[in-house]
Design a protein around this nucleic acid. Structure first.
Length: 558
RNA sequence: GCCCGCGUAGCUCAGUGGAUUAGAGCGUCUGGCUUCGGACCAGAAGGCCGGGGGUUCGAAUCCCUCCGCGGGCACCA
């Protein structure tokens, strides 16, 4: 319906005023109508005419063109054109709303990289945030018609591995892979995290250990170069790397998502190294024994791609990664999500890549996101021991539910966590997560929407279905139908901007609209039961579809 | 120092060029209803949209400038 209106307005502008202008339809205050446009204000400036007069000519034309579908076309304020649909047209739009799908990515292949957990490191609260947001973005693109491949990039080589390996060797009392068998399967993730923290602290405090760690780091690179899977050192390394990936799989599964591929640094390092070397002199240059890209001409800064020891830094690995992703998927678009600390790092890497692979740089969308802070402003860093682990975020939320006398289950816990993260605009100020607020049963929360859905389903279950053709709507019914009909627009906007929070804002408004309706309009037993059941069905379906886009389950009972 | 991001109600956040009155939630206060699952509804108080200047018929939104907070600025990611 929206599209149809836009076309009618555009052609009216063309025929009456010989002007081609982009038509933007907005949703005005309900008192003004269902749709509004400011084309007359734009045209008036260009034609040096009175905006209200211009608006009146367009409105008159729309009244005849759209007869039967619009109830009123009026001119208001400085020259807005307000359009009110007929009840039947509005009811139809509401009925179609839940099934609406964007086509913005129709037929595309998209690679979405997010979460980026590192093997030999611990999953912290920040990973929960990037996983939830990344998955929501992946789903937005997926529902808009793309084949989405979710991938992860993590460091299985590099200093942090040296640190963890150092602690592992200490624990095992040397290179004794057989002793790994003593660690129970269900404690592996835990144990690995502890080794990471130990190695990390030692690196900061003990010079001798620091030297050992640097040597171990080189050994790990060598082990990849030699494709060594059999030496005792190699056995320990590969086993522990595998344990890390298993831990990630379990974690993502709990969130209802699956990362299709873990790109380890070791698989992209060589390609990155080679690519950077191939462009020395043209794109990169040598400086102090390292290979760098000078960003200053582009308003950026200089970064090292190959260090003095000849090893690739993350910069070079990101170069290899983009090539590998393209080789694997031939993507139309590559979306990369990281926190904003890496924003300028990414800008430099993408600028360097643009110099030799312009089409890959252009096909890349980088999204910097905010960082997560728990209430109280604890800063999370896995470098130190004082991290908040990923699992703790879920435990805290479950605890908050218990505190209000509810038995925590993952549907509600994850609904609460996901919604609390997703309702904020991506990339704004840091996200403050308050577990108590997230499970709050009233207010703008995941569980509130889940409950709203369950309640509507309960009504429908009692009423039974009896499809009706809706001809007219009473005032309360009309408000609800109007809100339901806005869903496709909210989803479209979320897809266009890759901003899931638009869905949250909309769904909450929708639930409020329903509660207002529900307060004064009985469904079961009312003479308009059939019409109202129809509306409640559309409402519940829309709520469910919207929550699904966010990765949140909408249970029928709770 | 240079570059980037952010600054909206006591708190947590939407709104990023349009409509007399800048919106929600939480918290505070007042009233209603006890249901079709009240995890509700109606209302009040609370904002010079960080300060100042400019562009525009119109600015929380765009531009300039200052202040505050956060981040980045070569071999960590």
């Amino acid at each position: 319906m929206k599209h149809e209106l836009e076309q009618a307005i555009a052609s009216a502008c063309r025929e009456l005023h010989d002007a081609d202008i982009p038509v933007v339809l907005t949703r005005p205050d309900e008192q003004f109508g269902d749709y509004a446009t400011n084309v007359a204000l734009q045209l008036a400036g260009r034609l040096h005419k009175n905006p209200r007069e211009v608006a009146e000519t367009i409105a008159e034309k729309l009244r005849t063109e759209l007869a039967g579908r619009v109830q009123a076309v009026t001119v208001a304020g400085p020259g807005f054109i307000n359009i009110t649909l007929t009840d039947r047209a509005l009811a139809t739009a509401a009925g179609q709303a839940p099934a609406a799908k964007s086509r913005q990515h129709q037929g595309q292949t998209v690679v979405a990289e997010y979460s980026d957990a590192n093997p030999f490191k611990v999953l912290h609260a920040g990973h929960v945030y990037t996983t939830v947001v990344g998955d929501a973005i992946a789903m937005l693109i997926e529902t808009a018609g793309a084949a989405v491949h979710r991938v992860n990039f993590g460091g299985d080589v590099g200093l942090h591995v040296g640190r963890t390996m150092w602690a592992i060797l200490q624990y095992l009392g040397g290179e004794h892979p057989e002793k790994l068998a003593d660690i129970p399967a269900d404690q592996r993730a835990e144990w690995l995290s502890a080794q990471y923290v130990t190695g990390n602290n030692v690196y900061e405090e003990d010079e001798a250990a620091k030297a050992d760690i640097i040597a171990l780091n080189k050994r790990v690179y060598q082990l990849h170069a030699d494709k060594d899977h059999s030496s005792p050192f190699a056995q320990i390394y590969w086993t522990c790397r595998q344990w890390s990936y298993e831990a990630f799989d379990a974690f993502y599964a709990r969130f209802g998502t699956k990362l299709e591929k873990y790109y380890p640094e070791s698989e992209v390092a060589d390609l990155g190294l080679k690519t950077v070397r191939d462009h020395i002199g043209k794109v990169f240059e040598e400086s102090d024994g390292a290979v760098v890209f000078k960003g200053e001409p582009y308003g950026l800064h200089t970064r090292v791609f190959i260090n003095q020891q000849g090893l690739p830094t993350y910069e070079a690995k990101d170069v290899g990664l983009i090539a590998k992703k393209y080789e694997d998927y031939h993507f139309d678009r590559s979306v990369i999500l990281t926190d904003y600390e890496q924003q300028e790092y990414m800008a430099v890497v993408l600028k360097a890549i643009e110099q030799f692979w312009p089409e890959l740089a252009r096909a890349t969308t980088y999204i910097p996101h905010s960082k997560l802070k728990l209430l109280g402003g604890i800063k999370m860093s896995s470098r130190k021991g004082n991290i908040v682990r990923a699992i703790e975020v879920l435990n805290m939320t479950a605890e908050a539910l218990r505190a209000v006398g509810r038995t925590p289950d993952d549907v509600v816990v994850l609904g609460a966590v996901k919604y609390a993260f997703l309702k904020h605009r991506i990339g704004g100020d840091d996200i403050i997560y308050d577990p108590e607020e997230s499970i709050s049963l009233d207010g703008n929360s995941g569980p509130y929407l889940q409950y709203a859905h369950a309640r509507a389903r309960s009504i429908l279950k009692k009423a039974g279905a009896n499809p009706a053709e809706i001809e007219t709507l009473e005032v309360g019914e009309r408000s609800l139908a109007r809100k339901i009909s806005e869903y496709p627009e909210a989803a479209e906007k979320a897809v266009a901007e890759l901003m899931p929070h638009h869905i949250c804002t909309y769904l909450y408004e929708l639930a409020q609209a329903f509660n207002r309706f529900y307060e004064h309009n009985r469904v079961i037993g009312n003479e308009r039961q059939d019409v109202r059941v129809q509306l409640v069905t559309s409402y519940a379906d829309t709520l469910k579809a919207g929550l699904k886009l966010l990765g949140i389950t909408a249970p029928d009972t709770m």
